[in-house]
Amino acid sequence: MKPAKFDYYRPKDLPEALSLLESSGFDGKIIAGGQSLVPIMNMRLATPECLIDINGLQDLNFIESDDRVLKIGTMTRQNTVETSQLIKDQCGLVTEAVAHIGHLQTRNRGTIGGSIVHADPSAELPLVMMALNGTLHISSEDETRSVKAEDFFLTFLTTDMMPNEMLTEVHLPIWKGRVGSSFQEVARRHGDFALVAAACQLELDAHDRISDIRLALGGVEAIPLLISDAKELLAGERLTDAALQKVADVVAGSVEPESDLHASAAYRTQLAKVLTTRVVHQAYERAKGSAVCP
């Protein structure tokens, strides 16, 4: 279990990293925390010819907020994200989700950007990005652009990014008002990839009626699945068991999961239903209990 030969570069800044990426064509691969890449290289399932190590790009390690948008640099370690009070206050869904990623040891090393661009269909961060429709900021030597999460994830481990592009930061909208969120998953063990995961964020009006809701599921499709019908079904009403059931049924009807070793398609569908009701319910209760923002 040793990787095949590769060239290794450690750029000092973003322009150098992008230039290396450009010159390595299809053979370059960025390494940040390495928590997914290193194992697959060791097993020789991936044999990139050139590794560009961006651990030296400390400018990309930041958490900022302008009270409208939360901005996180791609090199921010997952553990830094998990323990950030700013993120907890302004986008608690991220905090709750990150705690489910692997183990403390892997979160110390793994980065927010690494997890997002790896685009594992069961991973927590891509799911949160989808649930909140975050914005991905991407750079290449020639241009800088941004993509919404809903357009970013294409299929298994595949995103909208070109080989010469690199994710630099992610932006998450900050919801104001009576907001509640919930992230739950069922995994075989603590720290495992979720069999199914669900994320929900919603906002209530003064009469406990849902004014906005975002709901997404992980582990049921090749990419995180946004349940766009949720808003139509739930907005304008208080949450009832019947409404919850309706959303769960819509979810059950819209997912087409694959069977694998740990979960059959039928079981995954069941989990999708159960977790949907749980996260919506919990987010709703949390929103009800939250103080109205000034």
């Binding site: 194992p39 075989r188 063990r189 603590h190 495992d192 070793l261 740990h262």
Partner: peptide, 26 residues
């Protein structure tokens, strides 16, 4: 948790700790 799972062709399906699940402290 633990099982060395083979498919009906004799292929091992649990060749890493991602799928061969040893209980951990939690």
């Amino acid at each position: 948790y633990e099982e060395l799972v083979y498919d009906n062709k004799g292929q091992l399906l649990t060749g890493s700790f991602m799928d061969y699940l040893c209980p951990t402290a939690p």
